[in-house]
Write a protein that binds this DNA or RNA. Structure first.
Length: 949
DNA sequence: TCCGGGACTTAGAATAATTTCC
DNA sequence: GGAAATTATTCTAAGTCCCGGA
């Protein structure tokens, strides 16, 4: 078959989050679970790969009783920050009749009707099986097909600038290809036949994109182009782009007659800034009711006819620019870092930098070699300019030649006194009274108030990141070659403002003049600067809830919806091109196949001074391994150095192609040497206006979500419906490889939950454990049947549990007695003597002794007032609680390393959520936080219960 | 055509706020 | 009521994509 068929929707309970579990199978160190009700189901649905690998059905502790889960794999024991997180998944993206039948009735129809059922991405095409990642035996595979892990250990011919601490074989630790030339797209690329005998001919001209010279040192970053003409005094010339756009734009802010009403109505320029401030303070102080009134005033841009991306974004623009952090306040006199055991008196300039490191002492960064190296280089530099004043010791006690002592080794630097000081300060802050905290908050609010809002064409809009980034140490992700570098303090001289011509130029809150002021109405940023570490541009934009961001968000999703109309044709085209005789076309088609099916990012070229991460177009030889007949294993670090590790079964032609593309290449070589993101996107734009690689991610994410939501139980409780919603969300997050660090407290809290699932733990401290309860209600037989046999309680467990309860009850009684006495003392009444407490403790002890006796003799006396009915009701409630806790536990486990937020914020059309909430009568606030509702007001206005993507 | 870089979106970590637990 | 856990928000790094100049 040639055209990819639509892919089946995956069963929600088999998402690959579980695969992640399997790949990092936590070790169960306590007893195995007994008779979990859903074990059998799990087993039945467990993908073969998992079964074959002996993965535990529930990902290692999901439903067992009182299991202690210990993250025990060597990988898991490494510091999180050093460890690229894994999305290890096996999936199948090849389509076959076989698959269709497996997929069952939930498969999307092959030919969509109108907006229906374009094929969904593979994430949902088939239950993704899980695989425990284990090193394959090298001898099983040819050199090329060896798993990356084993290859990684091979010494690279050329050392990379950075290595992967995890040694996971993502290509880190291997020479990063130095601008390997790509081949030209020319007729000479023609493949003679389908199998192709393509070879890397020497006369092929490389694609120029790769040959990037090493960047020059960025000590003095170049000014932004637009600022070249921008000075604080003279009005700069708008950028060429702006001029061009403005020329074609009839609305000119210079034309007095055409000044929009909003502007005319606005107060005079001088008074405007004050007015903005006043408004801000007012907004901050207003209570809920008033806020609701404000709501109504909000600009509903989505109701306007003329929406869309005209090049001119505003006519008038007023704002307060950026808020600089307060200047550095030197530490108290006694707080000093030490060098070689000797306290150093540092001038504020170098003390501040020392403090940056000191504050991070307990983080993984401070242990990271590259981070330390970069920090120390910059620290030494600042020390050279601002050296220690002297050692604060009497002259007689100074070490010999102390004047010449130089800070030469980071290992001899002791920042602990600084760290301890920061900790104490933090504790102090925590211990502040409510009023003190309130006062601090009020002061902060007052300071920030003027910066919160901007006036865009007379409308109030929230500003996003108005704070100038404070100085610190650069926290690059993954193996970033610059991590630890000093990020310098910004001054007004670094900041270029973009503001309305007639607006008052704000004054900075620290001394200094702005770098420049421009009035470019074709852009949406308010302030710009270049950071010193990488020379990257930073901007102040309006907040996510602003009309500018809202409009562009909506356009993004509309573009993704437009793709629905073209997707069949595009898929057909690239499927045909998989066999193209032109190498460039064949590579493009193959890349597109991956972008579409696996939701890979485009993969722009990256520089030497960045972390070595890749996307589709920049995949290299070592990132893709082939396993005949048609299995492809991806293992690479993507955006933010997140590991992408998946095994997929692909179309045979795709498999063949990759084999061809890898031919005659070696580690470090690009797989797609005739392709880059520009070529790919140019092609896509020709297929559909405005189409680019990233649109596929949006489209596939939203489409998948819509399909997944069909699994919502119509008659379920709100909780059950939300669980279905979250499952759908999770599938999308997995598809997009959105990961998060497993929280450090996860193992503990998961174990606690495990205890909860135990029936006996459901019994409050002052109540009788279930078996006894059952026994009292129905006699021993029932107790064994209901409580004893079905639960996971054995003698040893019960003993331990009772001991726990006794301890808790004793503690509670003591606290109660103390509290009562405290109160009595306050009221100047006689306190209760110790004998009262002793009496109570005696009673508690006796009760537990009785319990133990009942357990041992299995003879139980019904308690006062305990009727069979009451006790059965209690049992039933407990069973419900246990069931709910189990569901919650599984959910928690599946989501522990999957970040749901990113897809909800960026990829899932919010109208889907709104429509679903309306259809299933779930309050929207249970799905969208306050900020998300502020971000998506247009979705609430547009989507009714029947809205479809 | 190539390349640099401007402008914007997307991303996980860090931190703050809120809720739950004891 | 305070501590711990959880959730929401903020922060800023790291992507994408496209434009314009050489």
């Amino acid at each position: 078959m040639s055209a990819p068929e639509p892919m089946a929707v995956v069963a929600p309970n088999l998402g690959s989050s579980a695969s992640t579990l399997a790949s990092r199978a936590p070790e169960v160190v306590s007893r195995a679970p007994r008779g979990r009700p859903d074990d059998s189901d799990d087993d039945e649905e467990m993908p073969l790969a998992r079964k074959a690998n002996g993965a535990k059905p529930n990902g290692g502790g999901g439903g067992g009783t009182a299991k202690r889960v210990v993250e025990s794999s060597s990988e898991d024991e490494k510091p999180l920050s050093k460890k690229p997180r894994v999305s290890t998944t096996k999936r199948r993206i090849v389509d076959s009749e076989d698959e269709e039948s497996e997929a069952g009735p939930s498969s999307s129809p092959a030919v969509p009707v109108k907006k229906e059922a374009p094929p969904t991405p593979q994430a949902n095409g088939k239950p993704r099986s899980n695989k425990v990642v284990k090193p394959a035996s090298d001898s099983d595979l040819s050199e090329d097909d060896k798993p990356l892990a084993s290859k990684a250990s091979k010494p690279a011919s050329k050392p990379r600038s950075s290595t992967n601490a995890n040694g996971n074989g993502n290509g880190n630790g291997v020479a990063k290809p130095k601008a390997k030339p790509k081949k030209p797209v020319s007729e000479s690329d023609d493949l003679s036949d389908e199998e192709s005998s393509y070879s890397d001919e020497s006369d092929d001209k490389p694609l120029a994109k790769k040959a990037k010279p090493a960047p020059a040192p960025k000590a003095a970053p170049a000014k932004p182009r637009k600022s070249d003409s921008a000075t604080p005094t003279a009005k700069p010339k708008p950028s060429a782009k702006a001029v061009k756009k403005l020329k074609s734009e009839p609305t000119s802010s210079e034309d007095e007659d055409e000044v929009p009403l909003a502007k005319k109505a606005a107060p005079t320029t001088k008074g405007k800034a004050k007015d903005v401030k006043k408004e801000v303070v007012k907004v901050k102080k207003e209570k809920k009711g008033q806020e609701e009134d404000e709501e109504e005033e909000k600009y509903k841009w989505w109701e306007n006819e003329a929406m869309g991306d005209g090049s001119v974004k505003w006519t008038t623009l007023e704002h307060q620019a950026v808020l600089f952090p307060p200047p550095y306040i030197p530490l108290p006199k006694g707080i000093k870092m030490k060098y070689d055991g000797v306290p150093l008196t540092l001038p504020p300039e170098s003390e501040e930098v020392a403090g940056f490191f000191g504050a991070m002492l307990e983080t993984d960064h401070a242990q990271d070699a590259k981070f330390r190296e970069n920090f120390f280089k910059d620290f030494k530099e600042i020390l050279a300019s601002f050296p220690p004043a002297s050692f604060p010791l009497p002259i007689s006690k100074q070490p010999a030649g102390w004047e010449d002592v130089k800070v030469k080794s980071l290992d001899k630097c002791d920042f602990r006194p600084m760290f301890d000081h920061f900790e104490r300060e933090r504790e102090k802050k925590k211990a502040m009274t409510k009023d003190e905290k309130k006062a601090v908050k009020e002061a902060k609010d007052k300071l920030e108030a003027p910066y919160l809002l901007a006036l865009v064409d007379g409308r109030k809009e929230k500003v996003g990141n108005f704070r100038a980034e404070p100085p610190g140490l650069f926290r690059g992700r993954g193996e970033h070659p610059k991590k630890g570098t000093l990020k310098k303090r910004l001054r007004p001289e670094d900041i270029l403002l973009n503001i309305g011509k007639d607006a008052q130029v704000p004054k900075a809150n620290i001394p200094g003049e702005w770098k420049g002021v421009q009035h470019d109405s074709t852009v949406t940023w308010l302030a710009h600067w270049k950071e010193n570490v990488n020379g990257n541009s930073k901007y102040v934009f309006l907040s996510a809830g602003s009309s500018w961001k809202g409009q562009s968000d909506r356009q993004k999703f509309e573009k993704a919806r437009e793709l629905i109309k073209h997707i069949d044709r595009i898929r057909k085209d690239y499927t045909e091109d998989l066999k193209s005789k032109v190498m460039a076309d064949r590579q493009r088609a193959t890349a597109l196949y991956f972008i579409d099916k696996l939701a890979l990012r485009a993969g722009n070229e990256k520089g030497e001074d960045e972390a070595d991460t890749v996307g589709c177009c920049s995949l290299r030889y070592e990132h893709v391994t082939l396993e005949p007949p048609n299995r492809v294993i991806f293992d690479f670090l993507g955006k933010d150095s997140m590991r992408f590790h998946q095994e997929v079964e692909v179309d045979k032609q795709v498999f063949k192609n990759i084999k061809i593309f890898k031919d005659n290449k070696t580690r470090g070589d690009d797989i797609f040497d005739r392709l880059n993101t520009t070529l790919l996107n140019n092609h896509l734009r020709a297929q559909m206006p405005g189409l680019s690689a990233k649109v596929f991610r949006t489209y596939n994410a939203s489409w998948t979500f819509q399909q997944q939501l069909k699994n919502t139980p119509k008659k379920g409780t709100v909780q059950e419906k939300i669980a279905a919603y979250n499952t759908a969300n999770r599938e999308v997050a997995i598809l997009c490889n959105h990961q998060k660090t497993v929280s450090k407290t996860f193992a503990d809290s998961f174990a606690k939950m495990g205890d909860k699932v135990s029936p006996s733990a459901q019994v409050p401290a002052d109540e009788t454990p279930i078996p006894a309860l059952h026994a009292r209600a129905e006699g021993e037989e029932t107790a064994r049947r209901v409580g004893g046999d079905e639960s996971d309680m054995d003698e040893e467990f019960m003993e331990r549990h009772e001991a726990d309860l006794l301890e808790k009850a004793t503690e509670a009684a003591k606290k109660k007695w103390e509290k009562e006495n405290l109160k009595l003392a306050e009221e100047k009444e006689d306190t209760k003597p110790k004998s009262v407490l002793d009496e109570r403790l005696k009673e508690i002890k006796a009760e537990f002794k009785e319990l133990a006796r009942e357990r041992k003799t299995k003879k139980v006396e019904p308690r006062k007032g305990a009727t069979e009915e009451k006790l059965l009701e209690q049992i039933s409630k407990m069973d419900d609680r246990i069931a709910a806790a189990r569901v919650q536990m599984e959910d928690r486990d599946k989501t522990k390393d999957v970040a749901l937020g990113t897809s909800k914020i960026n990829y899932i059309d919010p109208r889907l959520t709104v429509a679903w909430a309306r259809k299933y009568e779930v309050p929207l606030e249970k799905l969208f936080s306050k900020t998300l509702r502020e971000k998506f007001p247009w979705a609430e206005a547009e989507a009714d219960a029947d809205w479809v993507f």
